[in-house]
Nucleic acid binder design. Structure first.
Lengths: 106, 106
DNA sequence: CTTATTAATCGTAAAACTACGATTAATATA
DNA sequence: TATATTAATCGTAGTTTTACGATTAATAAG
């Protein structure tokens, strides 16, 4: 390198990791994974954060592609976006399953 | 919730994700995974960043526990910390393998 | 139609992250 | 011993993240 770029795996993986890099966002995903019905404003009640802050975290997860939302009357229903979710899973699984070699030092 | 905390899985997972949340740090890990000999100052040459910035990223990875360094004369040799690496792998694998349910909306 | 509820967005402050050059400490070499 | 090399740390900008309350837009209920 010393050229100004990173490989696409590194970029994509870092972007997914960034989406997971806050306990609130991980908690939101845990909720969506657990509940059989997609929760909505209930997410706010389940987190120790204000409505506007939760909304921001939801936006980040949405922009990362990991969740999607659907308007249902006055409320909004969020779900895991399975397609992107599986892409992220595969990418991370591939990364972590790289055989760590027996190295000379450490 | 609405009490001031997150579950420990969310906290731990977010911390690992944060360590992976920058392409430079992912690139460093890719290098350490690929090379059979632990690279050292070579990491700096492989990244489009200054020595001090790379050092900072190495520090973050070290603090997350994902890598460890060993002084070898005038240079330092970095490796994946396999124990913590495997913990992170297991945590992420468990998280992503949570069965995504057939949900009502979205 | 008016009022209430829900959730996104705006504005903003504080904290954290990212990057760099300069400096420092340690070891190696001449 | 003097000089070079390596890598951590310091100081410091600029940017991004995180959080909140206030406001807004949309729908539902009275």
């Amino acid at each position: 390198m010393k050229s100004p770029e990173y490989n696409s795996t590194a970029i994509t993986l870092a972007a997914f990791a960034k989406a997971l890099a806050h306990p609130a966002r991980v908690s939101i995903l845990q909720l969506l994974l657990k509940k059989k019905s997609c929760i909505c404003g209930n997410i706010v009640d389940e987190l120790p954060l204000s409505q506007s802050t939760v909304s921001q975290h939801l936006k980040e997860l949405k922009e990362a592609g990991l969740i999607k939302g659907e308007i249902d009357g006055v409320s909004v229903c969020y779900c895991i976006n399975e397609k992107v979710w599986n892409q992220a899973a595969a990418l991370l699984q591939g990364f972590f399953s790289t055989s760590t070699q027996q190295n000379s030092c450490c």
